[in-house]
């Protein structure tokens, strides 16, 4: 996992190639290299990801880079370890979540979801969203646990399917240019996913207790 940047070590000033974020000459911790979270973890930029592998990778890196390992080191190294650890935690949060992972990949290719309330949202989707939200609000209002669980299941299925389809397309076409139409379609999918995500978030907030055991 040699770092991409080859600037000399901040501590000893010798331009030796680095290994594992530490200077090969003096052993000082180096700043995190520029690049995406995928690059940082040495993973291919892809939607398909072995989550167990990701977790293990982060755990192993944390072992080396956590601030607890640098409590007795110089202030500079302690700051660097804080930066690395935040990055690792961010990687776990973003790459470990399918929707955030896909969002990151598409953002790397210049595709982002339409801002809520903006004109970029297709009218049909906007209409459907409002109806679904109302349905959820009613079910909460009328305290219908069965109905609420059904809404959750349906939305989760819809989101999983759309994630799988969009993710697979992205991986399959990652290495080539995307046309304007393709990007537009991806933006629509991403906007829909964003809605699904915030719908499920609200569901968890308001009705999450329905899934509790005992």
């Amino acid at each position: 996992m040699a770092s991409t940047a080859q600037s000399p070590c901040w501590n000893c000033g010798r331009g030796d190639p680095r290994q594992d974020f530490f200077c090969a000459v003096c052993g000082a911790l180096q700043p995190p290299p520029d690049g995406s979270l995928f690059v940082y973890l040495g993973l291919p930029a892809a939607y398909a990801l072995d989550i167990a592998h990701l977790r293990q990778l982060i755990r192993e890196r944390s072992r080396l880079l956590h601030p607890d390992r640098f409590a007795a080191k110089s202030p500079r190294e302690r700051r660097l370890s804080l930066e690395h650890s935040m990055l690792l935690n961010e990687a776990g949060r973003v790459l470990g979540d399918p929707f955030r992972r896909l969002s990151l990949l598409l953002k790397m290719r210049g595709v982002e979801a339409a801002e809520s309330g903006s004109a970029g949202i297709p009218p049909a989707l906007l209409m459907e969203m409002m109806e679904l939200r109302e349905e959820l609000a009613d079910a909460i209002q009328d305290n219908q646990p069965g109905r609420l669980l059904e809404l959750d299941r349906a939305m989760r299925q819809r989101m999983d399917r759309l994630l799988a389809d969009t993710g697979a397309w992205t991986d399959a076409n990652w290495t080539r240019e995307w046309s304007a139409e393709e990007k537009d379609r991806l933006r629509r999918s991403l906007t829909e996913l964003k809605f699904c995500d915030s719908y499920l978030h609200e569901w968890d907030q308001r009705a999450g207790h329905l899934k509790d055991e005992g």
Binding site: P31, A71, S74, P75, L82, L87
Partner: peptide
């Protein structure tokens, strides 16, 4: 992408 941390920092503890 990485958040750079600047500013004063307490001296390292010497046990």
């Amino acid at each position: 992408m990485p958040i750079e941390i600047s500013g004063p920092s307490p001296p390292p503890p010497k046990p």
